[in-house]
Design a protein around this nucleic acid. Structure first.
Lengths: 126, 126
DNA sequence: GTCGTTGCAAAGACTTTGCACTCAA
DNA sequence: TTGAGTGCAAAGTCTTTGCAACGAC
């Protein structure tokens, strides 16, 4: 199915051997140091492939567009993976836990953004 | 300082009177129904202004680019607001709490993405 | 030889910005 | 009057995609 190309090996190697959380451009530049013949398009394609294979993880959903929320108070979001519905959610315990994690890591001025994805009751019926 | 323009009132009104979590285009289209003279640029500028004033909330960080993580196991991220450093974090209790919130809302196949922002120990010293 | 992969460049999607004009104060 | 705000279109950024050439199997 998948072919073991030079590019794929290089990219997989780079991402597996960093504790950074690099973006595509960073990976591309690293890859260029190892082989002059590689393109950004290939890096994007290969990274997506590795994500689909479950070998790596991608974060920050780039297909998402900015959304605005009339509720300025801190709260989190439940998002339906099927219909895209978004439900506001506030949970003190969750916030406390987040605070603690911040403290353990000696971080200050903690804020957080939590996205809970799932399938909503309506979409489960379909 | 800020001037009360027709456009600003319309946009603020639209966003305050929806329980949706609209994006800029949606707001723009709604606004066009009320006045033909409005541009997408103004909508973007005004929404950002409302965010800065603390009147509304913006989510999905669109200045963020996709990042890839060599750790494919579920975990969350602590991010320094100053230097951008990202620390992986796994917390069972947090995950349990998230599961519960999913259940309460009758959502299935729960996954989550948590971003904890703060100032890291190194940056606190500067 | 086949067909999955690649490089390249163009296209896409969303958002920001420069500029001259407009209009709130 | 005057400068903050606007419309418009162009530019910007990140990412995806079409296509001919390439190369793993």
């Amino acid at each position: 199915m998948y072919r073991e190309t030079k590019q794929r090996k290089i990219i997989e190697d780079i991402i597996k051997n960093t504790r950074e959380h690099p973006d595509a451009l960073w990976v591309f530049q690293k890859a260029q140091e190892k082989t002059s013949k590689i393109s950004l398009g290939t890096v994007y394609r290969t990274l997506e492939l590795l994500v689909r294979e479950g070998k790596i993880n991608k974060f920050y959903d780039t297909s998402a567009v900015a959304r605005f929320d009339s509720n300025p108070n801190p709260h989190h979001h439940l998002i339906c993976k099927i219909c895209g519905k978004i439900i506001d959610w506030h949970d003190e315990n969750l916030d406390k836990r987040i605070e603690e994690i911040g403290k353990v890591n000696k971080f200050k001025d903690i804020t957080s953004e939590i996205f809970i994805y799932g399938i909503c009751p309506e979409c489960q019926r379909k």
